[in-house]
Write a protein that binds this DNA or RNA. Structure first.
Lengths: 213, 213
DNA sequence: TGCAACATGTAATGTGTTACATGATTCA
DNA sequence: TGAATCATGTAACACATTACATGTTGCA
């Protein structure tokens, strides 16, 4: 239901083609959602079938521009106010951190460094977007309008990225201290702590006996 | 590949059954991943097939406890150091914020309030987890061990939840000001700003003519 | 003895990604 | 004229959720 309603929501702002929507998902939703064209085109067909959108223009190269219908607007509003959002968040990148005790400290450090890099880049990108939105809106005209909520969503993104960038830098320091104190990964052997728990060697039935002195 | 390696990673800590793993995914990974039993059981079968885990104990009620093998440990390490994580994050809840201009201010406010509530609850939960971990670790024994990285991951969760809680409270204030200044949602009519863009009424072929005075 | 929690599995369905496939337009 | 970008679509596959299905153990 998310993609479907996201498409309706974007079309409420202005008529667009499948191609436009595809690009929008890459940039505009502040990284909160994404979709590829192979998902979008069939969805547009279904939405038109159901009368929630309508093709209102044709362009060059077979371009088809869709607009929201009254029914479509009712649908997306209904979704927004009457259905619970899925609030679960998933992050492979953060799940991995959980398992970094399994690798060498230098690898863990490198992993965190890349994580920091990633958040730094996102932050820059979102801050640029925020600057654009603030300029458009020229200070004095707060509106109950799309741009206003773009700004609010982008603000969430900015704070999110900044926080996780700071976290990554903090975590890097933790590892650095650890390494400086001369501790090593469990990887390297007996003197260190809590090695991974492995299955005992498999017991073979009737092991060939060997003569011993 | 994520689920598969997450299972291996958890088994590196200690042997577990499918049932144990299912509960672990709900609690332990600091909300960064989840999986239901219907995914886990078939995965365990596949992993055993491939020799990455091995059944090392049976319990009551058909309980089967699996342990990691050497090959399994190698596999999860390989995954951690040699493959790029999927860093995309998706959040239906934040995507929705993008579209809140389509609903009544009171509904938008309510939405944000629930969002705040959600983050508040998560924050409390993670802070409790952090307190447990800090106690266990009793101050003076920083280890290259699972608990250490649990703590670091939980720290990411805490900062994340705190940030988004603060954001939600900030956004609620934005809406409150807006409403106080007497502005209304586009919903209610002409005087307000930027109504959703709708398709023009469909042109019907040969509308029945009516006589007019 | 009856219910909650433990415990494992399969099947149907929905959602998302990658790969395949094709063609038009613009501009250097 | 040749390459980049615009533009739309389908098919195969991978991954996740929900529903279906069954049986045990411990305890109040």
């Amino acid at each position: 239901m998310s993609l479907r309603n996201a498409v309706l929501g974007l079309l409420a702002e202005r008529p667009m083609s499948g191609y436009d929507l595809t690009r929008h998902f890459d940039e505009s939703v502040a990284g909160a959602w994404s979709a590829s064209h192979s998902q979008i085109y069939p969805e547009l067909a279904r939405l038109q079938e159901e009368g929630l959108i309508r093709k209102t223009a044709d362009g060059p190269r077979g371009r088809k521009v869709y607009s929201l219908t009254e029914e479509g607007l009712a649908e997306v509003r209904q979704w927004l106010v009457a259905t619970e959002p899925d609030r679960n968040s998933r992050s492979e990148a953060y799940m991995r951190v959980f398992f970094l005790w399994l690798v060498e400290p230098t690898d863990a450090y490198e992993y965190l460094r890349r994580q920091a890099e990633f958040h730094e880049a996102n932050l820059a990108h979102l801050e640029a977007q925020a600057a654009d939105l603030d300029e458009e809106d020229s200070g004095e005209a707060p509106l109950w309008a799309p741009a206003r909520w773009s700004r609010i969503t982008v603000e969430a993104g900015i704070r999110h990225e900044r926080t996780l960038l700071e976290w990554a830098l903090w975590a890097m320091e933790e590892v650095r201290h650890e390494v400086a104190r001369g501790r090593r990964g469990a990887v390297r052997g007996a003197a260190t702590v809590e090695p991974p728990h492995l299955a005992p060697p498999e017991v073979r039935v009737r092991r060939p006996r060997r003569n011993r002195a």
